[in-house]
Each structure stands twice: as structure tokens, then as C-alpha cells.
């Protein structure tokens, strides 16, 4: 059972930061994960008075407050349009609407959970995290870091024109994913392929062999071939493991299939596989 000695609804980020420097302190996100543990929290830091629960759009970027609920992100029409429904797809399988009304984007990203659909999705976009002290970091760099004591303020998605796709494989519809895959194809040609729930946390698959070079300019047949080839390549490079839900061997097979499918989907190639 989660135990909390003191609950502080902070007035500003500085107060949150100062309180959070103690090891026993803990910033509250949506609490869906936190409350499952047996943690003894000295000071629970609540950011919910800081108006960090909104999504702002500017010319250059989307600025998603850390306290924005997964549900708000899922139903945001601007994000939906921008990502062609991929963000919604990455969220809608997470337990249920009530759960997503509680869980926050900040909590999901800060946790860097292996099973995170959200992290996988953001990795495939030109996205950043803004930390109170640490400033703005690329999502990939943040994902690699260990949890620190800084305060996550918001997530930023740069509005670089991009075609995205998100696919997850689950044993049942609202279970944790067995594997996740997100693809972002920027108009200028940059392609991001993220694979998560390996079951370790999501990583970007680097195109060391240039298989996807010029992907957006390819015709459908070429795209399909490149998607297939990159799927094979990803299966060779992405490290997978076993857990209750699936073996490493099955996951590696899925890397191939989901990467191929997501590339084809984002690339606008017809046919479901």
C-alpha cells in the first residue's frame, strides 16, 4: 500500500523542485502506477495547481503540459489531425477511458516504462521534454537517462510535417503491449522508427544501412520492399526479451512484422501487410 506522510499542492515549479530534492519526495502524476506500489512517500508533490494540464499550439510546436491527461491528448483534435490518428491509436488501448482520464502524459514519459505506448509514439516524432532545471532535451536523450529529481514541465512536439503510424500487438485489447512500433516520416526525408515493449523501454531503430533513404520519394512497390527490408533489419538489431506475455523469439518476429506494417501505413502503401 502506498503511504504518504505529507501532501503539498505546490504554488510554483521552484517549490516543487525544492521539495523534490529529497529522496523520499515524489511528484504525483495520475497516480495509476504510483498507488500500486508499496512506497513510503515523505512529501507528495502535486503539480495540479500549476495549469500544466493543457495542450498549446504555436506556429512551431505543440506544447503539452506534463499534467495533461492521456485522455485529453487522445481527444485533442489538433494532435489528432497532425498525427493522422496515430497518437490516438497509441493511447486508446490503454486500459480504459477512466484510467486515461487519470494518467498523465508527464507521468507516462517520466516513468520511461518499458511497456509505454506513449514513449514509443513520441520517439517517432520530433519531440522534446522540457525540464524545470535541465531545460529542453530531445525525447530520445531523455528516454535514455535514468530518473532524476528534476521536474518535468511539458512535452514539445515540433511541427515538422510528418506522416506517422502506430501499431501495437497485444494479447488482449487493453492489455500491456507485447510490442509497440511507431513510425514518423518527415517530409524532408527523415524517418524515425521506434520499437517499444521489447519488453524493455522503447528505442529508435537507427537506419545504419540507409535502407529507408529517400523513402518518401519511393513508389509503392519500392516502399513495400524497403519496409520489408527494414523490418528484417530491425528484427536483427532491436534487442528483445521474454516476459509473461511473450518470448524474445516471438517479439523479434513481431519487430519485423510491425515495423514493416507501420512503415507501409505511414508511407501510404495500401494493404494491411
Amino acid at each position: 500500500m502506498l503511504k504518504i506522510k505529507e501532501y503539498v499542492k505546490v504554488k510554483d515549479l521552484e517549490e516543487a523542485y525544492q521539495l523534490n530534492q529529497k529522496r523520499t519526495s515524489c511528484v504525483l502524476g495520475g497516480m495509476v502506477w504510483l498507488k500500486m506500489g508499496n512506497r513510503n512517500v515523505g512529501t507528495a508533490i502535486d503539480l495540479s495547481g500549476l495549469h500544466l494540464d493543457t495542450i498549446e499550439e504555436t506556429e512551431e510546436e505543440f506544447r503539452i503540459g506534463a499534467m495533461t491527461s492521456l485522455r485529453d491528448l487522445e481527444t485533442d483534435a489538433r494532435i489528432h489531425a497532425w498525427t493522422g490518428g496515430a497518437v490516438k491509436e497509441s493511447l486508446k488501448h490503454i486500459v480504459g477511458v477512466q484510467f486515461r482520464n487519470c494518467a498523465t502524459v508527464g507521468g507516462s514519459i517520466f516513468g520511461r516504462f518499458g511497456f509505454s505506448d506513449v514513449l514509443t509514439m513520441f520517439l517517432a516524432m520530433d519531440s522534446y521534454v522540457e525540464l524545470y532545471k535541465g531545460g529542453i532535451l530531445p525525447m530520445e536523450e531523455f528516454a535514455r537517462q535514468k530518473r532524476g529529481r528534476d521536474i518535468l514541465v511539458r512535452i514539445i512536439i515540433k511541427k515538422v510535417p510528418v506522416k506517422t503510424a502506430y501499431i501495437s500487438q497485444r494479447n488482449s485489447k487493453t492489455d500491456f503491449p507485447v510490442l509497440t512500433c511507431a513510425v514518423g516520416i518527415e517530409a524532408q526525408g527523415k524517418v524515425r522508427v521506434a520499437v517499444g515493449a521489447r519488453p524493455a523501454k522503447a528505442v529508435l531503430v537507427k537506419d545504419e544501412k540507409g535502407i529507408l533513404r529517400g523513402f518518401s520519394q519511393m513508389d509503392d512497390q519500392q516502399k513495400a520492399a524497403a519496409a520489408e527490408a527494414f523490418g528484417e533489419y530491425a528484427a536483427q538489431t532491436v534487442v528483445t526479451g521474454s516476459n509473461m506475455r511473450a518470448s524474445a523469439q516471438y517479439r523479434t518476429h513481431l519487430v519485423k512484422v510491425l515495423v514493416k506494417r507501420a512503415l507501409k501505413q505511414a508511407g501510404g502503401v495500401d494493404s494491411g501487410n
Binding site: M36, G96, N171, S172, K173, T174, D175, F176, M244
Partner: peptide, 16 residues
């Protein structure tokens, strides 16, 4: 027993 919760023991939802 590893399926010690509804998180790890997945009974069907209405989508399943």
C-alpha cells in the same frame, strides 16, 4: 503465481 492481479491476469473486456 505470477498472475496476481487484473493487470497480469487478463479476463476479457467487451472488446475481446
Amino acid at each position: 503465481m505470477r498472475n496476481n492481479s487484473f493487470m497480469q491476469y487478463k479476463i476479457p473486456t467487451r472488446q475481446d
